[in-house]
Amino acid sequence: MITETALPEVRERKRVRLDEGVVRNLGLVGVLAILMIIGAVTRPELYGDATWVKNNIFTILQQASAIGVVTVGMTFVLIGGGVDLSVGAIIALAGVWSTTLATQSYGPLGMVFTALVVGVVVGLINGVLISYGKLVPFIATLAMLVAARGLAAQISGKQTQISADATINGIATTKILGIPLLVLILAAVVVAGWVLLNRTTFGRRTVAVGGNPEAARLAGINVKRHTVLLYALSGLCCGIGAIMLTSQATSAQAAMANLYELDAIAAAIIGGTLLSGGRGTIVGALFGVLVFSTITNLFAINNLSTEAQNMVKGGIIVAAVLIQQFRYRSITQLFKR
């Protein structure tokens, strides 16, 4: 009896030695594997074809690319104790602004530059309103969500703006060494985000500011300035995302990237980021995005409705957070003993 009850606890203790984040990411890899298996079981004839499988994986990754970039920025904001509801709207504004006839006349670099600057400036406005205007992040970015989409509609005259630029449109179709450029951009942003969070003073400040803003302040960290930078970073990611989406659609419009804020927040959260700040991982956020785009893909290859798909997504968000709470509690309990 005694050995029976003692054994699982010893095993649990060993697991704690593993990084908590690693355990969670392994879980998400497991979820991805399960989704793949479901795909293979429901459509065996497709999964029998190796070329199709490879192309399908690239399709999933390409669908995940723009939202993935945005989620990296969102993860920083969330770890820093805030939230950015305006990411979808910033993408729309950056996309529309960079595809006006006037901007397009400056060529592809002018369009990229415009998208990035629009993203950063809108992010800065968010940050200043929150840090110095003392608005709650939810309110400030909600207002920005409404206003930025409004401005995007104004600029575009509610029309879809076609991108006539071959270089921009080519981003979505270019492959380097057989890998789509969009996927490489996502990979680059994820790597840069990981380094920024885990290996730089910026990342350390982000964790400190989100984990305990008062402690950060009393340790001499400029919390307000850092908060502004976090929203600017999120805006920058939106600018990149806007170019990627524009390239995929060869157009931009005020309604693009609809509800991206919710997808990005959901992905970050099932990846283990706390809404209350101070904790989260870039790799987890990436897996969160991949889980969602894999589900979308799974439903598409089975010709199922998006309604059912959204219900499954909702269930997955709740399940992921419940599991995390349970695991986090049990880990802290273990340490207390």
Binding site: V207, A208, G211, N212, E214, A215, L218, A219, G278
Partner: peptide, 17 residues
């Protein structure tokens, strides 16, 4: 509430400033 990042390891709390 004013000094610690409770979830972070000891050394990162030590080097916070």
């Amino acid at each position: 509430s004013q000094a610690l990042l409770l979830d972070e390891p000891v050394y990162k709390n030590m080097t916070l400033a």
